[in-house]
Every structure is written in structure tokens, then in C-alpha cells.
Design a protein around this nucleic acid. Structure first.
Lengths: 111, 111
DNA sequence: TTAACTGGTATACTCAATGATACTGGTTAC
DNA sequence: GTAACCAGTATCATTGAGTATACCAGTTAA
């Protein structure tokens, strides 16, 4: 069975496209870590602005990565939940965390 | 042993920063697939421009991801080789290819 | 001699992603 | 009453990543 490099490249680029900007992966990670409320997610990602988080969550809702639920208590509270589909990024994120960790060690050692 | 979410996020963001733009991962992938010559790499990544590939390879050389060797035959030929460090992206790339592939199937099924 | 290959560089431009800042309307605690 | 929380929206400015296009000097093949 031959490896189809063009097909692999296409898959790779699809993934990169889907991951898109700077915040998608951190937001997925935050949701998968159990953060649910808007401000809670915001606080869990230092540096993100309200605007970017809002945009990101909207797009992710459209892409079925996140489920938004409004609870009608007073005051209204909103919950964001990662879908099963969202969780399929688990392996990629894990590998990225591992790489970043090893990279840091590597830098420290060679400094 | 507790998971340190801040540390994980930092590792994640370091990795994302290192991966950077649109072409880094495709170039690494191409090199790891055995492409060595400039035009060969260029052709293996449809859509990339000469300028972007040139920039990418220079940065990657500075970051010790790639080794550039000039052979003094006529005409001069140049070879790019992935370093061991470059190959540490193997797992991430593999997971990304898998995700993209599954995603395509998922889209097709639900269409 | 003309075209096509090699390995790139130079210049100009554009636009979409991100950042900065302010604001809203409602609620709760001191 | 005022400060701080919630969940965002609105507007504007910026910037750099990426694109487009042309070009260079040398070599090889028809």
C-alpha cells in the first residue's frame, strides 16, 4: 500500500485551515479542561480579548465544535460545552503540549 | 500529580508560535517525505510561492530545523535536509493528517 | 537560439486577523 | 451608591503574513 503524499498534504492543510487563527486551539483546550462560562474561559487564556473570544466561540458554534446554552435564571447565565467533535482534537493538542514542553527543556539545556 | 493548566497552555502556545504561519508544517512534511532540492520542495507544495518557500527555509535554517548544503558541481546544486529536531514534529503532523482525513470522511458522510 | 531547467532575490500591494478601547444593561455584594 | 461581577457588542487602528509579478545568472537539451 503506497502512501499518497498529495492526499496527506491535503489532509494536513485541511486541518491547519480548520485550526485557523491564534486562539482556536487554546479555546478548545480550555473547554476540554472543563471551563464553561464566558469569563471563566476568558480568564483561563491570558492575553485573549473579549472580542476575540466572542468571535471564536461564535465560529466554533457554527462549526459544531461547541454547544451554547442559555439558562434563564437571574441573571441569565450562559454555558459553553465542547461537542464530541471538538474532543477529536485531543490527540493533536496532547502532542502539541508534549512538543512545547520538550522544546522548553531543550532550550533550557542548550542555554 | 496535578495537571498544571497554565503550564500546559504555555507549552501549547509555544508550539503554535513555533509552527507559525501557513507553510511551516507543509514544508517540514515535504522535507520529511524526502524532498531535498528547492524546486522539488516547491513543486511538492502546490500553492506556495518561491518567495514564501525561500523565507520559510531561511527561518527554518536559523531555527536549526533544516540543514542547507551547497554542492560545488556545475551547476551549483543545493540540498535541504531536515534535522533530527525537525523530525520531532512527526507525531503532531501524523495526528494532523489523521484528523484531516477523518474530517473529510465526516463531511462526506454528512453531506 | 530558444526554451526550460536550476536557486533564488526584489518590489509592490492587499487584506484579513488581531489588538485597543470603550460601552451596554442587568445583578449582586459592601 | 458605588464597585465589581456577568455576557457580551461596537468601532477603529494596525500590521505583518501572504500574494503577485518580474527578474537575475548560469546550465542543459532540442
Amino acid at each position: 500500500m503506497k502512501r499518497d503524499q498529495a492526499e496527506e498534504l491535503k489532509s494536513l492543510q485541511d486541518t491547519l485551515y480548520f485550526i485557523g487563527g491564534k486562539w482556536r486551539i487554546p479555546v478548545i483546550n480550555s473547554l476540554c479542561n472543563g471551563n464553561r462560562r464566558f469569563r471563566e474561559i476568558e480568564r483561563s487564556i491570558p492575553g485573549i480579548t473579549t472580542r476575540m473570544l466572542s468571535k471564536e466561540l461564535k465560529e466554533m458554534e457554527m462549526n459544531k465544535l461547541v454547544k451554547r446554552t442559555v439558562y434563564d435564571d437571574t441573571p441569565v447565565s450562559v454555558e459553553y460545552e465542547p461537542t464530541e467533535y471538538c474532543r477529536t482534537f485531543g490527540n493533536i493538542i496532547m502532542e502539541m503540549i508534549n512538543w512545547g514542553r520538550d522544546h522548553r527543556k531543550f532550550i533550557q539545556k542548550n542555554k
